[in-house]
Design a protein around this nucleic acid. Structure first.
Lengths: 337, 337
DNA sequence: TTGTAGGCGTTATCAA
DNA sequence: TTGATAACGCCTACAA
């Protein structure tokens, strides 16, 4: 079937042990033998059987990521960028990347984590969309399985992580729209359990408080991180007796939905109403009108997460277990900029 | 370390063979024993070691996909939708999804394919962005490794596939802009080796020919499937002595770049110039102005590809090895609709 | 119905 | 420097 070290050994009249060591670069093998083995392996198109190696070494050289899908066919280029970053860095670090999809907090999600961890399918995992209290963090800690995460949950676990200054990003966003004269500022958020939701909402509130602005309870809506959710929430906001003239959204997808609803309502966006997002996805430059957003370097963040995880897996010392990223405002026409 | 069937056997005073068979649902085991085993496994949090199982069964229950990245940090929600579709269907079919990134036709790409195939890391692969003549198709055929693909290469290999009627889609696109009075129609394509490029370009030319329209050689540009490429190509087109008044793009990302360039040139898009894409990514609804595009159900296509691949891997008979999808025009403001 | 034993391909330990 | 051999955890033919 496939070529094994046994085939190479046979052909070269060597023991499989010698072949194995020659290929793995051990020192106790004669240079000429090593040379012969390596050439033969090349010629025969040998590649080690990953299952056998994994079984023996008790590690899989694989990193796992479970993509949180809130609904079937939800598309968000945030994820393509995130996955690309993880893929590039995984390859560089010599790991494969195993991906699955599951609704957050679902039974399915738990099963996959359990199978991967207990079945030794992955050496470590990358988490994002971390919750304020996250069962995954606790579970992986208990299982002593290495992981890294985007955002820091409040479970008291010191895992390697990247944190975006969501709070401050939103404060700046509020300041920006205030400066442009929009004073009735609403917020469309995501699921309340999410850390980003907690932090961004807090930033929104702090920004308003700092300016001594009125905070209408009606002005804080729940979305679901999708453009559909943003669309629906915006319709509700616009039908209030005293509708807002600025809508800040927890992410860009939500903002796309908000733009859509405001356009349908024939509002002059950037003039009669300001709309902004958070993420900095590429496509935000091409929306109608171009979307003001808070840019976070998703690709770089994903790479960093994998890189930190690789260090953790290899058990190397890690100088900084926490990287803080200051996102930056991208001012565009949707807020009148 | 982890729980194995040996642990369960020990606890229950059974042989590991009995435990194994009880868990795998063999008939030759007493109901009560099976009951005990299953409960114990549950209690102890057992999950089979994937490497051991894979080594023994000679299959990995894993599907591979290599994401073609043309440049670092290229974001395209086409891929997040594609990956989500594959992820959902893989889970449903009982497969894990292994993902890597590599530039198309690169040495890296070849190495990964070789490692995965020869190392038995995956049971099969999904290909997209198929080339007119594709080394991957030939390689996997030679290695007798199951695979499915989006688009059919001309290598004379009858693999399970989904084909989108790119030719006809572009013919319809040409008809549409002609009908709206745009007669100087340009085309921005992708890498010439791609099957979609060949088919869509042919559709463009056929559409023009059918209407007896003039075809300026200047009007056919090469892009790279990114918005940057579309932006650059559009700048070239607009600086021609006799610039086009319609630009049809090989994909939506390219079209986003074209919109950007046309907006910068202060053209009234949909009026002075028509711009259209191809893919139907979600975000095309939110561009400035909303983008006319040819919609293909990416999520469903991805699922179908995995489903066909699963059938192929299991060696089941496949009624239809080729699925043809007729994409449909989505008319929006960017072409004056 | 259950247990014994061999082997999947690799790596690591020990001897030669 | 090299070879024989024993695991890693699971599955399955065969024996009991």
């Amino acid at each position: 079937m496939s070529i094994t070290i046994r085939d190479i050994a046979q052909k070269l009249n060597l023991s499989i042990a010698a072949v194995s060591r020659a290929l793995d670069g051990y020192a106790d093998i004669s240079p000429e033998t090593r040379e012969r083995v390596i050439r033969a392996a090349e010629e025969m198109g040998y590649a080690p059987n990953r299952a056998a190696r994994q079984l023996r070494r008790q590690k899989s050289d694989t990193i796992g990521y479970i993509m949180p899908v809130y609904s079937p066919r939800f598309a968000d280029s945030y994820y393509s960028e995130f996955i690309e970053g993880m893929g590039d860095e995984s390859a560089k670090q010599g790991f494969d990347l195993l991906i699955s999809t599951a609704p957050p907090q679902s039974k399915t999600e738990q099963q996959i984590y359990h199978q991967w961890v207990q079945g030794n399918k992955v050496d470590g995992l990358v988490l994002n969309r971390i919750c304020v209290h996250d069962w995954r963090v606790q579970y992986l800690r208990d299982q002593h399985k290495p992981f890294s995460g985007l955002e820091h949950s409040l479970d008291g676990v010191d895992y390697p992580r990247v944190e975006v200054d969501n709070f401050n990003g939103f404060v700046k966003l509020v300041e920006h729209v205030l400066q442009y004269g929009f004073e009735r500022i609403a917020y469309i958020g995501g699921p309340g359990v999410l850390k980003i939701q907690a932090d961004r909402l807090a930033g929104y509130q702090a920004g308003l408080a700092a300016a001594g602005m009125f905070q209408a309870p009606d002005y804080v809506c729940a979305g679901d991180l999708t453009s559909e959710g943003g669309y629906a929430a915006t319709q509700v906001l616009l039908s209030l007796p005293k509708p807002p003239n600025a809508i800040l959204c927890v992410n860009d997808q939500t903002a796309f939905g908000a733009l859509h609803a405001a356009n349908e309502a024939d509002l002059r966006i950037g003039e009669q109403i300001a709309i902004a997002g958070f993420d900095g996805v590429r496509d935000a430059r091409y929306s109608n009108p171009p979307l003001t957003t808070v840019d976070q370097p998703v690709y770089e963040i994903a790479r960093k997460l994998v890189q930190m995880l690789a260090v953790e897996i290899r058990g190397e010392p890690m100088p900084e277990r926490s990287v803080l990223i200051e996102p930056k405002l991208l001012l565009r026409a949707s807020t009148g900029a």
